[in-house]
Structures are given as C-alpha cells and as structure tokens.
Design a protein around this nucleic acid. Sequence first.
DNA 1: TTGCTCCTCACGTCACGTGAGGTGGC
DNA 2: TTGCTCCTCACGTCACGTGAGGTGGC
Lengths: 285, 285
Amino acid sequence: MLSIGEFATIGRVTVRMLRHYDEIGLLRPARTDPFTGYRSYTAEQISQLVRIVELRGLGLGLDDIACVLREGTDEAADESVDGRLQSARDALERSIAADRARLARFDAYLRRREGEEVMPTSTTVTADVRRIDPQRVATITRPAAGFGNANIGPVIGPMFPEAADALVAAGVSDFGPAIAIYEADESGNGDGVLVTAGFVVPAGTGDLEGLTVRELPGIPEAAVTVHRGEVTGIDGSWSALMAWSEENGWALDGVCREIYWTPGDRPQAEWVTDLVQPVTRAEGA
Amino acid sequence: MLSIGEFATIGRVTVRMLRHYDEIGLLRPARTDPFTGYRSYTAEQISQLVRIVELRGLGLGLDDIACVLREGTDEAADESVDGRLQSARDALERSIAADRARLARFDAYLRRREGEEVMPTSTTVTADVRRIDPQRVATITRPAAGFGNANIGPVIGPMFPEAADALVAAGVSDFGPAIAIYEADESGNGDGVLVTAGFVVPAGTGDLEGLTVRELPGIPEAAVTVHRGEVTGIDGSWSALMAWSEENGWALDGVCREIYWTPGDRPQAEWVTDLVQPVTRAEGA
DNA sequence: TTGCTCCTCACGTCACGTGAGGTGGC
DNA sequence: TTGCTCCTCACGTCACGTGAGGTGGC
C-alpha cells in the first residue's frame, strides 16, 4: 500500500489532483482510513493513474475519461465512448484551426500597429473582418444614376418610409433595422446603380404586397466598419473602409450593404450605420 | 444615446458582456441613470466596442485589452503593451504547437484502440511517452556479462545497499529513489553491460567518497511504463515496452533506465519500478 | 393589464492551485 | 518538541451564461 504522497510522486501528479479524482469518483483509493481519512493506494492502481494522465494529455475532460475507463464494464459507457472520443478529436482540430486564423489576424494587427507608429497622422479606421449571417429582407429596388451620396441620396430617401408603410399595411410590425444594397446596373450606360432598400424581417416571412421578400445570403468574410452621424458623410467612411481593406491584405469581392441600426425618428447626428463589404484574402497576402 | 440593448445589437455582443465590461471598468457607459441604474451609450463608443471585440478575437485577455486601449493616455500602460501583445502571440503559437502534438498522440491512441478491438488478447501495456527532467545521481558502476535479469540481478543486488551506506557515511540522508542505468560495454566481447546503480540526490550535491555523482541529462521523449512486483518479472515488462514503442511508431534512441520508487524495506511484491526508454519519432510514422 | 427592456444579485463553469487551520506518527 | 505528511474546508481562477426576482415606461 502506498500513501497519497508516494502515489503522487510515482504517477507524477500532485496530491491535490489525486484528492480531486477521489472526490469526483474517477480514481478512488484502495482504502481510506475511516478514522484519520488517510488514503492508501495499491501498486496496481498505478496503471489506472497512468491511463488517466495519458487521456488528459489528449485533451479529454475528466467525465470523458471516466467513460473511457468504465468501458467494458458498463454498457451505457460503452455506447458513448466512441462518440466522446470523436468529439474530443473534433474539438482539438477546430481549436487548431481557430488558433491559426487568430494568429494570422494577430500578425495583420501587428503590421497595422507598426504602420500607425510610422505614420501616426493617417486616418485611423476601426474596422474588422467577420462573418455575416444570412438575413431575410423585405425590399424595394430602384435605379440611380451612379454611386456616391449625391446620386443615391435622393433616390433612397423616400424608399424607407414607403417600405415601412408597405410592411405595416401587410400586418408586419416587428421588423428589424433598415438595410440598403447597391449593385452595378448593367442595363444602362454602365455607370448606373440598382438601389435596393428595405428592412430586415423575421426568418420565414412570406411574400408581401408591394415588396420583394428575399433571403440575403450569409457572407463568410466581410470587412465591416461603423459610420456615425449624418448620411452625407458616408462616402468618406466607405473610402476609408476600402483603403483599410487594401492595407490589410483583403480584396473586395461582392456586393456591399449598409445597415441602419438607429430608428428613423432619431436625429441623423445620432445614427449608427454598418458598412459591409464582402472580401477575400488577397493573393500574396 | 443608445440603450444597452441597442448598443449590444449594433456591436454584436450580449448585454451581459457589456455589463461585465462596465463592472471591470473596461467600457463604461457614457451615462448611468442614478435612480434606475439604466446604462446609456453614445454612438462614438461603438468604435471602442469594436476594438474590444477585435482584440478579444485575437485571444487577448480583458486586462491586456484594457492596457492596449489605455495606450497613449497612460505611461504605465504604454510600457507594458508591447510585452503583453508579444506574450499573447507567443501563447497562441505555443497553444497551436501543443494542440498539434496532442492531435498526433490522439491519432496514435485511436490506432492502438483499433488494434486492441481486432486483437483483444494482445498484452495490454499501459505506457506513454513523456519528457524526463534532468536528475542528479550518486552511483556505483560495475560490469555484467549481458542483459536480462539472470545476468544483471546478482551484480546489481548488492550495489544498492553499498551505495546507500556510502551516502549515509558521507552525511547525505535525504536521497531519493533508487535508479539503475544499463549501457553496452564495448571493452569486452561485445555482449557485456555496464551496470550503474545508485540514488537520486538533491541538485547541487557535490562529490562523495566512494560514489560517482553525475547529472543525468533530461530526455525530451521517453517511453515509460511501470513494472509492478518482483524484479524477476522485469524482463517481460521491458519486452512489452519495446513492443509497445514499435507498435506506436517510436524508435528506440538511447540508454534505458530503471527507477525504483518503493523503499527497499517493503516486500518485493509491492515494488513499483519505472522503465524508461528514450525514443524518437520513427521515420514514416 | 400585458410585453418588453432594464436592473441587481448570485450561482455555475473546469480542473485544480493555494492557503488556512488542524491532526497523527516518528 | 520539531518536521513531515496527512486531513478538510473554502476561496480563487476567466469571461461570462443563466436563472431568480423585481422595476419602469408604453
């Protein structure tokens, strides 16, 4: 019989860990003195401990380890053990992939920091690249003569109240933020833009009179920044987002969107607008 | 001014996270109503939140993030921020390396499991590969005619009491477990073995009369199993360890050791002995 | 009045590390 | 008596998730 200290030394674990394994029933000492509480282990238990240490080293949780150890003696454990091993392995792979992506972003961040130190007068944009989930939207689409707030503004202005009225008329009152999408219009002289404006509606919303309901696909990687205040200044934020994307090694890839988070009854100075530009990793970046 | 719910929606974080950031002082709302406790945020604070989310996505802890955000306004923060970023990046790299090693061991473990299912009668050895730290030992060395317990036993038997007596005579009484090392003896007919036996002594122990004190180097990767019981059965455990190493894609690489954990005054049936064999990853494994 | 948003505690997470305070055998 | 090992609580870790129980304005 070995004392807890001897057993811990041989197994290269701490005494505290052995007490913990006892407490959760993972590895009970062969004997516990009923008066002093002293734990005693047998030499045979070393192999159990070695297995626990090995499995823990693979990243398994103690409950999974308990299942693996019970294998062969407990039918319920037998059934779940393969699944538990598989999901632990999956978690490990996901963790590696996530950490690698993190490291790439970290290095991009450090390069940007360097750039700012060298050239501290450059416009500091707070932007990042993230995944955008699919959204269902109820919209109106109209042509405009070109990009830029001067062309877009007068066209899109009336579209939001119209879309909101149509939604209310159709009995939908719990719609989300306003959204705008800009696509090149190839039917005209080539400079035209198709302006789509409307509101996010709950998933599963069907057709609505006077509105086009469609599912905007999710975007795996989109450069996103926030524009604050008057809509007249939005061109500058778009330029800054484009510049930021290029500087950080992202290539523009797809149709951009604007999401107006703030209700229309607030003063424009308080508006908060997401600018969303799909991107892909640029070659050589 | 934005309510906590609006601010959370725009920033794609939970309300609970904003309360947490308020609590730890990372991001205080622009205003907190003194009577109701309601938090209000300004549109300008969005950029702060975006930065926090971005840095958290790089794996930084909230205290590190606080430091980065204070940069430029707080000299103490300025000094530590580069170090904090560096150590966060280092941690990320280490985590990736550790997870990759884990994954490799996981796959080796799964292959072994497969093998056991196919051939459940095979001897099940509980062994694993781990790092062995350097140890200081006080030893005696003598030649034996060959490997195996029949050759080694009679030679090594008297060496432990002799070494222990010499240690006590030299005034060292707090020595650790007994240890044995076996090296091929190239001075004879080629079958001979140099048997080194002694005890682990505290780091820094100097020369001792009648004993050779030396530093055993650490081993980055060693296959280790535990032999339980009589020393006469130790050959079988060694064979099993060699077989296990080969089956799991490890090539033997270096001089093996035995570590006798159990004090000599216990019956041999209770002895616990580590068998340690340095290995390297076999080609093609 | 019903819904909705907001509030403040406060426990739970995971596998122990780390004292505090005390006991038993050499 | 001094050291050493052992014991049982019980708090702390990290960044929140998740109720419980209650309030304020439409």
